[in-house]
Amino acid sequence: MVELAAAARYGRTFVRIGRFEPTSQVCSACGVKDGPKPLHVREWTCGACGTVLDRDINAPVNIAKAAGLAVSACGAQVRPGLVPAPRGEAGTHPKPQASTAR
């Protein structure tokens, strides 16, 4: 798989989440699956804990949790650190040479 090779090259982990994982239907606060909703419903309230969830934010939070990537922002590094460029990509490009072809 190309994704695995690219992730390994850059020191990252590639995690595949199932296509039919109900990430927008599960409460990211308590984990209860609330069930399918029509696509026009963009915000919903969890029946178990009362948390108001935005569907477009809830799904990626659940994906991160499923992948084991979720971290608390309290004192944790939220952005990944800098990744050095591979040696062949680092530095400046050489100055173009004048063409001697006639």
Rank of each mutant, 00 (worst) to 15 (best):
E3V: 13
R55M: 02
V26N: 07
S28A: 13
G11T: 02
G88N: 12
G31K: 06
S72W: 00
A66D: 09
R12Y: 02
F20P: 01
K33H: 15
D56A: 03
P60Y: 04
K33W: 15
Q97G: 05
A64C: 07
G18D: 11
T51R: 08
K33S: 14
V2F: 07
A67C: 05
K95I: 10
F14V: 05
T23L: 04
I17K: 07
G81E: 09
R102Q: 11
Q97F: 03
R12S: 10
S99W: 09
C27I: 05
V83F: 07
R79C: 07
I57Q: 14
T13Q: 12
P94L: 02
T51C: 00
T51S: 08
R12L: 09
A8S: 06
A48P: 02
S24T: 15
R9Q: 15
I63W: 00
G81D: 06
A6F: 13
R19H: 14
E43K: 10
R16C: 09
V41Q: 07
G50A: 03
G11W: 01
S28H: 15
L69Y: 11
G91Q: 03
H40T: 06
K65I: 15
G88W: 12
V83I: 09
S28Q: 14
Q25M: 02
D56Q: 04
G50D: 05
P80I: 12
A73E: 14
A67Y: 05
V15Y: 07
L39A: 05
W44C: 01
E21Y: 10
A98S: 10
Y10C: 15
H93Y: 11
T92F: 05
A29T: 12
E3N: 11
P86W: 10
A76P: 06
K33T: 09
V15L: 01
L82A: 13
R87Q: 15
A64M: 08
A7Q: 03
G75K: 00
K95C: 15
R16Y: 08
I57R: 12
P94E: 04
P36Y: 14
T100R: 11
G35E: 02
A6R: 14
A98V: 14
P36G: 13
T13F: 01
A8H: 10
V83M: 06
A48E: 10
C30N: 00
E43W: 08
I63L: 09
R102V: 08
V83W: 13
Q77E: 12
P94M: 01
A90F: 02
D54G: 05
F20R: 08
K37A: 00
G50L: 09
A101N: 12
T13P: 03
T45R: 08
A73D: 13
A29K: 14
G11K: 02
A85E: 08
L4C: 11
E89H: 10
C30K: 02
